[in-house]
Write a protein that binds this DNA or RNA. Structure first.
Length: 612
RNA sequence: GCCUAGGUAGCUUAGCGGUAAAGCGCGUCCUUGGUAAGGACGAGAGCCCGGGUUCAAAUCCCGGCCUAGGCUCCA
């Protein structure tokens, strides 16, 4: 709701013409005048329809605040549609105006102008500094969200469950768990602030290595990827796609924008308050998706699903999803306003199948930690009721993870999920980054009209939300944070923009030999380049080190004339004599399970432009 | 969104009322190199944007934007 206050010597109005069939005829005067009053022009907006009572209460508080400041007890409530372009339905607006009159009327003299009329009016503003004020009121801030906020919720119970099924007090168990889990407990349970004031190291790395940057011409939290970073990103996306298709997910692609005029969209979106990008397109109000739920639910809604189709797994790499996070929450690769999330939704027959799928999907994520070179700490969060009914299953889950797991038991359900598993990477400052997550959604099937058919009956399936890796940005961040903790910071070889680099001692004499070998590597789908810049050998080796090239080879007369190469293995800080074929064989083995992409930058470093 | 700190060359930073600096990168030349950075010279700056104070503002003040930290938030 928008409010415009004018502290006036007087206001006078009379109706001129009815607007459609909206006009109010009873309970309000069709003309009137009030002296020395706070004139309040009011626009009721679409979001107010979610909870009109709360909006009225909040608006009344604002009006009392203003009349208090203006030291007046006379108020004009004047419906005025022109303060916003996002109006509530007329019947809602009318009801809000009436309720507001009833509320304010208890301690003010109120003149309310009728809704649904063109009106002539005259107003004289007093002109002092406080005489013109505008306010924005919503149903959420003061009335709804605040009491719902975590601070006022009944606190969760926290435990550590060990793989043997024993439940321990979370804080008490700290001495028996890994450093990462200790940091996780510190952050989640004890509210410890790790490394306060320090900037996460991945920020410097993403710039220095020419991976990712900010763009001043866009909004905060919208990143741009340079070729080296784009290659890492694309490889990660290929990898997740392969993982999920192999698992049984069926890829789709769905729209990124949705019409807020559709009831289910508006209801669902309304729950997320201000955290969306919204815009007008022609005469439609649209929003950008904040996950792939909408599009995939829409597909499921339109499908004829039978019992035999379950579990039905619909998957999408959501380039992009948008969340207009608060400015202070947007940080580098940890949180953005536009991000890419692999998102799968699985419709299941019943809670038994939902639990079974959740377990398999969670295990799948956990098993990928080695591929990414990161460590995951598990957390299982659920309602008291879910835990009481499923304790044995939770024990089985933790035994399956084979890692002590953080257990959060929420006294009541606050979210759409009743149970949720997530995996956190602990960054180099000791702060958790939540990455993969899988949740059991017990609400959405009904809201979106998703059903499956079994015999004569139809049922709403429990639906799992699953992000097998977490957002691609956050995965990249987690890999960089993990690198920052390593003695020799590096990417896994399959993600390295350059996998093998040749350093010709004399580019004019040894460059050609390098090219022949680089071509041979590329034929085997290995990314190779040649540092042919006119720089000293020492400097170019330093370059291979700072570019985190996993394998690099100095090529001079000895190599050109001999059979073997001195291959520097960066991760091991070691040099091994081997033939090119042996190197290719070694890399084939190392890269076997991973996506292969060609170089994004020219083979010769002398041709690389500077992006940063 | 609120609070704190910062925004100076392509990058990282110094300067903090009085002629704008350094390192890296870039260009030219010398060096023709063997496992972590050879030398010389040179180009390159509406000092974030808009107002104000002052004889004089990158420097002080106010507002805005951006970045980070903290709070809150993370469906």
């Amino acid at each position: 709701m928008r409010l415009l206050f004018i502290h006036s010597d007087h206001l006078e109005f009379e109706v001129t013409e009815e607007i459609g069939d909206l006009a109010e005829h009873e309970g309000v005067p069709l003309d009137g005048r009030m002296e020395d009053c706070a004139v309040t022009f009011i626009t009721v907006e679409s979001a107010d329809a979610d909870d009109p009572d709360a909006v009225v209460t909040n608006a009344a508080t604002e009006i009392r605040d203003v009349t208090g400041q203006l030291q007046t007890s006379r108020v004009v409530l004047y419906p005025y549609a022109h303060l916003s372009d996002d109006l509530a339905p007329p019947d809602v607006a009318k009801a809000v105006m009436q309720a507001l009159e009833a509320d304010i009327g208890t301690d003010h003299e109120v003149l309310r102008a009728p809704f649904g009329w063109y009106k002539a009016f005259e107003v004289r503003c007093k002109g002092h500094p406080l005489s013109e004020l505008s306010r924005h009121v919503s149903g959420h801030d003061e009335e709804e969200e605040a009491p719902e906020s975590t601070a006022d919720r009944e606190p969760s119970e926290w435990h550590i469950m060990t793989p043997d099924g024993e439940l321990h007090d979370a804080v008490g168990a700290k001495s028996d768990v890994s450093d990462d889990m200790q940091a996780f407990i510190g952050d989640e349970v004890e509210d410890v602030q790790a490394s306060p004031g320090e900037e996460p190291p991945h920020l410097a790395i993403m710039r220095d290595k020419e991976l990712v940057g900010y763009d001043d011409m866009s909004d905060a939290g919208n990143l741009r990827w340079y070729p080296r970073g784009k290659l890492v990103r694309d490889c990660l996306m290929d990898w997740v796609d392969d993982l999920i298709v192999d698992y049984g997910g069926m890829p789709v692609e769905t729209p990124i924008m949705y019409d807020l005029g559709v009831r289910a969209i508006d209801e669902h979106a309304g729950k997320f308050g201000e955290r969306q990008y919204r815009f007008e397109s022609g005469d439609r109000r649209m929003m950008l998706r904040f996950a792939a739920c909408f599009g995939q639910f829409s597909i499921m809604h339109d499908m004829y699903i039978t019992e035999n189709d379950l579990p039905l797994r619909i998957y999408e790499m959501s380039t992009y999803s948008f969340r207009r996070e608060q400015r202070g929450e947007v940080v580098g690769l940890k949180r953005q306003r536009a991000f890419t999330m692999p998102d799968m939704h699985t419709a299941t027959r019943d809670m038994d199948q939902a639990r079974e799928e959740l377990e398999r999907q969670a295990k799948l994520s956990l098993s990928t930690a080695d591929d990414l070179g990161v460590n995951y700490e598990p957390a299982i969060r659920m309602t008291r009721q879910f835990f009481d009914e499923n304790e044995a299953w939770v024990q089985e889950l933790v035994a399956d993870f084979d890692k002590p797991s953080l257990i959060e038991v929420l006294p009541t359900r606050h979210h759409y999920w009743s149970a949720k598993v997530d995996f956190a990477v602990i960054d180099s400052l000791g702060r958790p980054m939540e990455n993969p997550t899988v949740q059991i959604d017990v609400e959405s099937a009904e809201r979106f009209g998703i059903e499956y058919h079994a015999g004569e009956e139809t049922y709403h399936p429990p639906i799992l939300h699953y992000s097998p890796s977490g957002s691609i940005e956050r995965v990249t961040g987690a890999i960089l944070e993990t690198a920052a903790k390593q003695e020799i910071p590096r990417f896994p070889t399959w993600l390295s923009p350059t996998q093998v680099r040749f350093v010709p001692v004399r580019p004019d004499l040894h460059g050609e030999a390098c090219e022949v070998m680089a071509d041979q590597l590329e034929e085997a789908d290995i990314r190779a380049d040649i540092d042919d810049r006119d720089e000293s050998v020492g400097k170019r080796i330093a370059g291979a080190e700072t570019d985190w090239v996993p394998y690099y080879i100095v090529v001079g007369d000895r190599e050109v004339e001999g059979d073997t190469l001195g291959v520097n293995i960066r991760a091991e800080d070691d040099e091994l004599e081997m033939t090119l074929d042996a190197l290719i064989e070694h890399l084939e083995e190392e890269l076997d399970a991973f996506p292969r992409r060609s170089r994004y930058l020219p083979m010769h470093l002398s041709e690389h432009p500077q992006f940063v």
